[in-house]
Structures are given as structure tokens and as C-alpha cells.
């Protein structure tokens, strides 16, 4: 049964799907933007897509978050709706047209966060079984403490990013660390499971970008594209 899921086998679409993953404050979005601009300067066809950003449902999800109304499973399904919408409207058409698709967070975000919220691991993987398997996924590894420092330098952690819905601790800073550690633990397990490429987020912006470019070059080379 596993085999029939698209997520578990390489896609044979013309384009290339590259994803970045990691907890907040890992610098992954910055890296992706720098990479995008570089690829564009090389006249590559590039598009960019972000987690929870579809027209269809992201407003509903945001409104529900504000009111703290939904259970982990319902949230999980709403994020899946958002993802399915972007997959079919943006990602797959672009891959068919031969684009390099850069995704800021992909299904692994759902696997990490939802499981950290107590959703069944096997259930969530099957729910997202229709996803296209990425050609390259970079996992930006940063500790919970560093993440907290970067994200919450000027503000308190937000309700959901701190996992306050789980009622682990009434202190948002404490809760943030415990929750994000759980998320990180799930990511670490996926390094082997899905072949995520780990990168130490404490490295300089330059070093990380050099590594990222090497990775994408070798993935594109396999498809006969030399940068």
C-alpha cells in the first residue's frame, strides 16, 4: 500500500522541486530568497511557494487560530487543504512546465508539527500521500534556544508557535522550547526516512548559501542542467 503513494517515489516531471525545512528562526527563508535571486540571475525559470498561503483556505485557518477553536486534527486537515490547493494550482503545473519550484516548508512541516501535537504519525503521512516527492530538501538544524532568541528578540512567542494549545506550560517561553524541541525531534527522524539534507543553521549566511548552491547544482546536473 505504501508504494502507491506519490510521495514515496521519485516524480518524473520535467521540473525540479526544492524545499527548505526547519523550525522558525533557522534562517531557511533567507537562504531560499538568496538562492531564488541567484537562480533568476542565471535566467532559470523559478517560482516560489510558501506554507499556508493558498487563497482557498489560509484566511479560514488564520481566523480559527486567532480564536483557538480547532483541534490538532482539524488544523492538520486545514493545512492539508491549503497544501493540496497549492500543489495542484501552482507546484504541479510549474513542474510540468520545467520550472525550479522553491517551497518554503513542505509536507515535512506537517509531519513534524502535527506529530508534535499528538497526531498519529502514520495517519498524517498517508493523508499527504498525494504529494510530489521533492528532488532536494534541506533541513536547517537549529536548537530551540537559538530559535527562541532569534524569533522572540522583540516579542513574546505566539500562541501556536509556542504550542500553547497543548497546555504544556503556562509560560510561553518555556512552552516554546518544549514544543519546538518536539518538532525538531520529528525533523531529525525524517533525515533518514526521507533523505533530508541536514545543514547546521549556526553557520554563516555565506557558508550556508555555498552549500545550498552545491546541493542544487548536483540535483540539476542529474537532470542534465548545468548552472
Amino acid at each position: 500500500m505504501e508504494d502507491k503513494f506519490r510521495l514515496n517515489k521519485p516524480h518524473n516531471l520535467k521540473g525540479t522541486l526544492v524545499c527548505v525545512e526547519g523550525i522558525d528562526g533557522s534562517g531557511k527563508s533567507t537562504q531560499l530568497v538568496i538562492l531564488r535571486d541567484w537562480l533568476k540571475s542565471l535566467k532559470q525559470d523559478v517560482i516560489f511557494t510558501e506554507w499556508n498561503s493558498s487563497d482557498l483556505i489560509s484566511q479560514t485557518t488564520k481566523a480559527a487560530k486567532k480564536k483557538n477553536l480547532l483541534s490538532p486534527r482539524t488544523f492538520s486537515l486545514l493545512h492539508a487543504v491549503d497544501f493540496a490547493d497549492r500543489l495542484e494550482q501552482i507546484i504541479i503545473p510549474a513542474l510540468k512546465a520545467g520550472f525550479i519550484v522553491l517551497a518554503d516548508r513542505y509536507v515535512y512541516t506537517a509531519f513534524a508539527r502535527d506529530v508534535a501535537r499528538g497526531v498519529d504519525k502514520d495517519w498524517i503521512r498517508k493523508v499527504y500521500g498525494f504529494a510530489v516527492r521533492p528532488d532536494l530538501t534541506l533541513y536547517f538544524r537549529v536548537t530551540e534556544d537559538v530559535s527562541l532568541e532569534r524569533i522572540c528578540a522583540n516579542r513574546a512567542p505566539k500562541f501556536y508557535e509556542a504550542g500553547m494549545d497543548l497546555k504544556i506550560s503556562s509560560d510561553p517561553y518555556e512552552s516554546y522550547k518544549i514544543f519546538q524541541k518536539r518538532v525538531n525531534d520529528e525533523y531529525k527522524k525524517m533525515v533518514d526516512e526521507y533523505g533530508l539534507v541536514e545543514i547546521d543553521a549556526n553557520e554563516s549566511i555565506h557558508k550556508k548559501q555555498v552549500f545550498f548552491r552545491e546541493q542544487i547544482k548536483s540535483v540539476l546536473a542529474l537532470k542534465g542542467i548545468e548552472l
Binding site: L56, T60, A64, L70, L77, V81, E88
Partner: peptide, 26 residues
């Protein structure tokens, strides 16, 4: 919360088979 989103999406004819299915599941 979600019933309204479904009705809205149906009205705007925005759904594909997967989003249709997942929205009802939510």
C-alpha cells in the same frame, strides 16, 4: 468554521477533487 469555507469555495468554483475531499474531512 469550515462549512462556510466550503460553501464559499464551492460558490467560487475553486475546488479540485483533493481539496474537496480534505475540506469535508476537516
Amino acid at each position: 468554521f469550515i462549512a462556510d469555507a466550503i460553501n464559499d469555495a464551492k460558490e467560487r468554483n475553486l475546488l479540485n477533487a483533493t481539496t474537496f475531499s480534505l475540506l469535508y474531512a476537516a
